[in-house]
Write a protein that binds this DNA or RNA. Sequence first.
DNA 1: CATGAATGAGTGTTCATTCAT
DNA 2: TATGAATGAACACTCATTCAT
Lengths: 208, 208, 208, 208
Amino acid sequence: MAESKQEERKRATRRKLLEAASRVFVERGYHAPLIADMVAEAGVGQGTFYRYFDSKRQIIEILLDDIVGGLLSQFVEMSESLPDSAEAYREASEQAILRVAEVMDTQQELCSMFLREGPSVDSAFAEKLDGILARFAELARFFLDHAITNGFARPCRSDVVSQALVGMALGLFESRGRGLFSDLDASALVAEGVALIFQGIGPETVEG
Amino acid sequence: MAESKQEERKRATRRKLLEAASRVFVERGYHAPLIADMVAEAGVGQGTFYRYFDSKRQIIEILLDDIVGGLLSQFVEMSESLPDSAEAYREASEQAILRVAEVMDTQQELCSMFLREGPSVDSAFAEKLDGILARFAELARFFLDHAITNGFARPCRSDVVSQALVGMALGLFESRGRGLFSDLDASALVAEGVALIFQGIGPETVEG
Amino acid sequence: MAESKQEERKRATRRKLLEAASRVFVERGYHAPLIADMVAEAGVGQGTFYRYFDSKRQIIEILLDDIVGGLLSQFVEMSESLPDSAEAYREASEQAILRVAEVMDTQQELCSMFLREGPSVDSAFAEKLDGILARFAELARFFLDHAITNGFARPCRSDVVSQALVGMALGLFESRGRGLFSDLDASALVAEGVALIFQGIGPETVEG
Amino acid sequence: MAESKQEERKRATRRKLLEAASRVFVERGYHAPLIADMVAEAGVGQGTFYRYFDSKRQIIEILLDDIVGGLLSQFVEMSESLPDSAEAYREASEQAILRVAEVMDTQQELCSMFLREGPSVDSAFAEKLDGILARFAELARFFLDHAITNGFARPCRSDVVSQALVGMALGLFESRGRGLFSDLDASALVAEGVALIFQGIGPETVEG
DNA sequence: CATGAATGAGTGTTCATTCAT
DNA sequence: TATGAATGAACACTCATTCAT
């Protein structure tokens, strides 16, 4: 394994650069930092950057790809066993949303950065980001249509509602990132959001 | 005749530059365009820019200030006569949201640009933008608290819900900007959103 | 003619840069000088270079084009009236070669630079230069074939001989540039060369 | 067995690098290739280059020295027995030139590369190359002066003529390298050149 | 006032050279 | 000894800003 020592060092350098870039992007956004700032943060030489990456643009894309891999999978699982009652449906939604929220929570600052800076990187990056959010909206719509068909949800424009739900989720995520609701943990916040989704703000209907 | 020919021409040049900048920002975002692109679009000389503005940064701020002035006022009106029933409350909300939507619709592309590019301009601009959205959230929360107090809405974390509502609204606005829901006009879209807010997606409760 | 003042200044700047580049290339070759050296020599700012030219590569090509324009024309004239005796043929050759020599003499250093540096600029430039020399060889061959046909010259491989003649001319030109034959003026040198071309080095044939 | 396995291997590596450099220079000239290109072509590590050579500059000089050693010797032989008739003189010239041509033919591409790239390497290298050509010119002049003295050649400016002859030879060599005269072998081409040198292009003098 | 040519500090990128393994 | 990852000085090029006209 004489080779592996060298290889390991390369991977370490690459990781140092990615982590430094991540920190720098979180701290100062995408446009302001120079390559020089990232290599300084990583503690490597200027030329080292170009041994591993072509540009700032490529590095932010790699960071995004690294993070989205595990993200959608949380939600996708849900599609394997569709719930069979309104209550089960709500519970399953809450579980799925909570899992996504927990993953994003561990990378809270990086995710916020992507939502803030991503749309302005360039149009290709913006579209990639939109595509990711669109995947979430599609999943939401798929479940919602299923729920409507089975009478677990009221008939509605599921295309509109699913986009609204994604917007709502992002709104809450960003607010939390800004330090709001610091008295609530992720599950309490998700519970509040799910309540809003399923019941709305309307007064409790007096049953019976 | 307080205004000389000279002054009028200056104002025209200033407007030409602002409109050109607006078009260019909408088309290519904030970071990519050069001062040179904006003066070319405006059809004025390079030096002329600096007679009216200090920087690209200043111009986008002026454009933002121009647009937000009339925006909040639509919503604020509502606070002057608080509704006195759940139904009136819902109707008033729908009216207020619709008016904001209509204002934003007339400047749809510029508003989208601010939401996309604003967070990445610099931290001061991002905070200004956040402040504007926070105003909307505060208004929403004010109405919601009033509604809860009067039993027109179910008790909930109004801070969380109001942020969720703003997120939802932005999600729908941006989706619409991307060409989704093109079969719905603004009022139909707002109606769908308001239904979601008040009822959620849960099945119609069978009353009685 | 308010425009023309500006235009004149632009042309002066452009010329300053071309002349500075010419001096710098002559002095230090093509590869060694930096853009920074050329703008320093021209006494203009770094950015000014890029207002007029894309690269060092472009500037040397422009310099070459400027010089070759008038060069071939000297020789081409000759083709309009082909000489009708061996003696006339020799005299016409001498005249034509002398005129080319005189043109090259006025730009001696620049021409030497092209012959020295041109082949190494890049393959496209080398081919361009080869093409120019090939034009001279073609002209020489055309006259030679005419002379052979009319019995003014001995039968020979005119393709070989014409290339040899161009090589000979270049050899003499470069030697002269290096300070050799400084006791001979251009016409004496051309006369010596033409004698070699027509008679070779063989002993004077004893006629009669 | 003065030479260990170690030493043998070192010499092999050195030769690999020299041959790789030669191929790369022939293919892409002197300036364009990077050290990295040469070590890749040689199939050795980047650092290995510096165990054997200081710079690209040094390597091209070594390649030149390797090639010129055997070259002049071909011609020098001739000076040992000066010919004693015009005809013998011509035959001896043809033999000598042919031998040089044959040596250069075996390294045709490398020699062309030196003639093309050498003048632009730097002024010291250019002077070295000039010196080599000057040696040929001196030899030519030495024979020519001898011939003139003995009446085997017509009186002329032997300094001029010898430079012209070297130029002619180079012109033919480079043309041949470019694929011209491919129907002629080296000896036929030399014969044509020697005919030109001795007789010129003038019509056959009618003897008697 | 309007212009656009000129500017040069700032930045990305290259590549000869070093040195730990 | 051979390697190739790391380096940073060197260089090309950009573009906001100035200022003479």
